[in-house]
């Protein structure tokens, strides 16, 4: 469905709106934007970019745009997984901590100061641990029936503790060059991290829209009772989305952390806030059944560019605080929009 048909189906004049009484209170344009959140986010993103470009044309320089993409590539990768989790009406807030743990593991395995293992082998170990942790989340949520917010909150804390134990407050240095290629290298002029993110985003889009598994993920999130009646196994599907997210956190760590020459014990802190905000801003419904990968990617870009814009505004030390405040406002607005949109659908 395009916005064109959406708009014509819900005329601008509130008087003609026939769907429900509650829809009368929302103006037509806002309503159609609520119906297709991706477009709303895209418009907002375009407006932000335009505004910044007018104030400071340097923003549009290819190098800067590339930096924006490179910086946000790991978030987009993780957010793709978290989108599926949220579509099944669950949540995963352990992704940031997991990225932190995996960074530490990767540093310890490859650094010349520590194990100095083969880089390819180290990468496989990182991906395996990420997948394994995701699977533990999945088993606890789907089979032990612990609410996902509790499971992943516990996991967040436990992994953070494990990371601090491993790193003992020190930075890991002397990473091998072949590892840093993942974060800083390019293939045919395109950074590896952007290529990886693009590949995984496309794969996630195909999973979401073109595969039986994808449809079942949405079905479970839309109506878990009906899903059971259709012979689906909501447990297995939930186990899958958490495991897949763990794997993606592994990939994001490989391309995201290696661009620095050192590994900092604070890596991954608050990533979960950024990612969940981006997914919800991108149109996924916390109550499940709804959300698209493209919306999530737009959400990541919007939030990422807001961060860059703040840098351009030269706020200095206060930058982080502003970024947090704006992120918070975004998530509240997105949930509110979701709530109003949900009312309309009823």
């Amino acid at each position: 469905m395009t916005t064109g048909t959406t708009t014509s189906a819900h005329p601008q004049s509130p008087g003609i709106a026939t769907r429900t009484s509650s829809s009368k209170s929302i103006p037509g344009l806002a309503r159609s934007l609520l119906a297709q959140r991706e477009w709303g986010v895209a418009v907002l993103l375009a407006l932000t970019v335009t505004a910044v470009a007018i104030v400071n044309p340097a923003f549009l320089q290819p190098a800067n745009l590339r930096d924006v993409l490179v910086n946000n590539a790991p978030f987009a990768i993780i957010a793709a997984g978290v989108t599926f989790v949220i579509v099944t009406a669950e949540i995963d807030i352990s992704v940031g901590s997991l990225a932190g743990l995996l960074s530490a593991v990767m540093g310890l395995l490859t650094s010349r100061d520590y194990a100095h293992l083969n880089v390819a082998l180290a990468c496989l170990i990182v991906l395996a641990i990420g997948t394994f942790v995701g699977a533990i989340n999945g088993v606890l949520v789907a089979y032990c029936r612990v609410p996902s917010i509790i499971v992943t909150l516990g996991m967040l804390t436990a992994l953070r503790g494990a990371t601090e134990l491993l790193m003992a407050g020190k930075w890991i240095q002397n990473l091998p060059d072949s590892l840093r290629f993942l974060g800083t290298g390019s293939i045919a002029g395109v950074p590896v991290s952007i290529l990886t993110a693009a590949a995984l985003i496309i794969a996630s889009m195909i999973l979401a829209t073109r595969t039986p598994l994808g449809r079942r993920i949405y079905a479970v999130g839309s109506n878990v009772h009906a899903a059971r009646l259709a012979g689906l196994s909501p447990r297995r599907i939930k186990l899958f989305v958490f495991t897949f997210t763990g794997f993606l956190v592994g990939v994001a760590t490989l391309v995201g952390v290696t661009k620095f020459s050192t590994i900092d014990p604070a890596i991954g802190k608050n990533w979960e806030l950024f990612v969940v905000t981006a997914v919800v801003v991108g149109g996924a419904s916390i109550s499940g059944g709804k959300g698209t990968i493209i919306g999530t990617v737009l959400g990541v870009l919007l939030l990422g560019i807001v961060g860059t814009v703040l840098t351009f505004l030269k706020l200095g030390d206060r930058l982080t605080y502003w970024e947090r405040a704006i992120q918070g406002a975004f998530i509240l607005l997105a949930v509110l929009a979701d709530h109003l949109g949900g009312k309309r659908e009823k």
Binding site: P212, R215, R216, S222, N223, L229, K290
Partner: peptide
């Protein structure tokens, strides 16, 4: 009983989707 968020196609076939490419794709 239906999946409100999904299309008619999906509602009819969820759980027994016609597949291609050896079951990989819908």
């Amino acid at each position: 009983v239906a999946f409100g968020h999904l299309s008619t196609f999906d509602n009819i076939y969820v759980g027994r989707e016609p597949k291609k490419l050896g079951g990989l794709l819908l």
